[in-house]
Design a binder for these strands. Structure first.
Lengths: 352, 352
DNA sequence: AACCTACTCGACAACGTTGTCAGATTGCTA
DNA sequence: TAGCAATCTGACAACGTTGTCGAGTAGGTT
């Protein structure tokens, strides 16, 4: 059934290959790394031995010895590998890394600062060549050692604090303002805010954008129409339901995060208000266009962010240097329907 | 601004720590690994040196030397880290691995057998302790070496071919049959099949389940109502549109894969048939319950599959042994609306 | 024939760490 | 005081690999 030789307990090493081929380990190494300068006869002898033993080089040992010490692995410290934003980012990193035969460590932080540190510690300890970080903590000074040691680090989605590294961010402020402006344009003045944990910098920025856009239109938001610290879908659903069933409910909603948007949609749907109360969400999500009404969003571009982050990483790994820079990937308002439901102040011609 | 010492070019090693603390490297090692048997004075001396230098152990070098040689990293070879099934699986693996401080390498195969081999090669070469594989190739004999060497391998979603390892599968046949039976129960006899690449084993099983369920009801499917090899959303949308606009269109659809279901929904929606033609999809997806009508699916449980796969991996890593076993995670039909749209043969009391 | 160059090859050390083992120190008992 | 066990410590080798370097061989030139 199995004609392959029983492994001599444990994986074969270069020594085993060399022994079988009748050459030195160094020559065997030369053959498997393609270094060259080996007689054709010995090359085939080594190759035969490799095949016979099923030898696989130990890349770990090799990178310990090799000049640059690279492990050809980079680490992605994400919010949650299973959420669409993180996984799109992850995928974009992979696509760029793939061209260079670089592998990816991925881990989920779940907004837990301790987990962030634990992950980064684990990854650096495993000699990841670079770090892509969506931080959850409020200070990343602890990364100074890594950065000084020359490990490329790029922050994504949220800015670094206490440390100076490249960052790929979204203009949350402008995106939120754009959403609010859009709702005002469609005749709304009573626009509620439902947002993520205020501890998250991007949530604060989006809230700022919301407030400033309203104030630009001379609107003062009602305190009872502002809810923070919604992180999970169910929290958002409950908050939206409460707000919409109170007296004097808002005519439009700005939901400042993915899951908050979805939770809010559930509330609207179950209250039968989905065709009446306007909604613009921050961050696009799959099937938003298939819902009834289709959901208007301010879309981020996680793929583009990932590609950009990866390219910064690899340029640094290639030896390029420049002062730490923050890049902004633009947002895009995608009008699909829910954000164009007319408000009480809609001019007939404006609400189309 | 920066009070930390400039790193002595490159990361500090245990030797640097030992030198600074005035002890041998072995004693420094004893302290950082918590091996014990070291005077309190030296312990603090070493700890001070560690702090001062910002020393981080090189886990890679350590695992090279340590008895079991474990790297505390496992590899997940997924279809596409950014699709919901894969990322839910990934997340479940991470949750189990987290308890043991094990990290995860993840990569996307994209249904490309060559990519599958390349990924597995890269991961084994980096000494991953174990492999979780959602295969794309039709034969995985090439893994024999790894398995013989004692690396735990678990296949998920698709069975191993040419090699005998643990597997965590879905009962695709029964799930598909259940979907078709459900549609028949609701008065449909002309039920179309839209499915994934026939090269994928699970797609074949689902198709089998479809055919057998129909034949159990004495129904012979029409050739023009069977389409294979749909993999992307757009392909499915085009195929569904073609089928639904031909003469004598089916009254119900069984879509045998995630993206096929979504593409088909788009076609139904744009043709205005979404409230008329029944649909059951294989594999659940986010927001299926928020669509109009809500989408009835045969749900798999990727989280449970991931947890099970991880537990098998870790039990093997803990030294437990047993003959390679295939586990089946049950599917669950979730009736939400689209699958209960009545067909022409519906009894008034059955269609509810 | 003496010399040189180009090429092939292997001994050795080293990457950063830990297992082994034996030496040194301490404290206790007889 | 000698003897011995218990405790602490460091020298050394080894994990699997590759960089360095010098030895060996063949071929070509004077």
């Amino acid at each position: 059934m199995s004609e392959e030789p029983v492994a001599p307990r444990g994986r074969p090493t270069l020594r085993d290959v060399a022994l079988l081929a009748g050459v030195s380990t160094k020559t065997a190494s030369r053959v498997v790394t393609g270094e060259g300068g080996v007689t054709a006869a010995k090359v085939t002898a080594v190759q035969d031995a490799v095949a016979k033993l099923g030898y696989r080089p130990n890349f770990t040992a090799s990178s310990l010895r090799r000049a640059n010490g690279r492990t050809a692995a980079i680490a992605a410290v994400l919010e949650d590998v299973s959420n669409p934003f993180s996984s799109a980012l992850h995928r974009a990193l992979e696509d760029v890394a793939r061209d260079r035969d670089v592998m990816i460590f991925a881990g989920s932080v779940d907004e837990d600062p301790a987990r962030e540190r634990a992950l980064i510690h684990a990854f650096t300890t495993r000699q990841a060549d670079a770090l892509v970080v969506v931080p959850a903590s409020d200070n990343q000074r602890y990364l100074a050692g890594e950065v000084n040691a020359g490990t490329p680090v790029v922050f994504v989605d949220r800015p670094p604090v206490g440390i100076d590294v490249d960052a790929v961010l979204v203009d949350n402020h402008a995106g939120a303002a754009q959403a609010v402006h859009h709702l005002v344009t469609h005749g709304h003045r009573d626009i509620a805010y439902l947002g993520d944990l205020l501890a998250i910098a991007t949530a604060r920025q989006r809230f700022q954008g919301y407030k400033e856009a309203l104030s630009d239109h001379g609107i003062r938001p009602l305190a009872e129409h502002i809810v923070h610290d919604l992180h999970a879908e169910v929290d958002a659903e409950a908050a939206a339901r409460r707000m919409l069933t109170a007296e004097a409910p808002p005519t439009a909603l700005f939901t400042a995060q993915n899951l908050v948007t979805i939770g809010t949609l559930r509330a609207l749907r179950s209250l039968g208000l989905h065709e009446r109360v306007a909604l613009v969400g921050f961050d696009d999500f799959p099937l938003a266009d298939l819902l009834q009404p289709p959901v208007t969003v301010v879309a981020q571009d996680p793929s583009e962010m990932g590609r950009l982050a990866a390219s910064l990483i690899f340029r640094r790994l290639d030896g390029e240097t420049w002062p730490p820079t923050t890049h902004h990937v633009p947002t895009r308002l995608i009008a699909r329907g829910s954000g164009e439901l007319p408000g009480p102040h809609a001019h007939p011609e404006a609400a189309q």
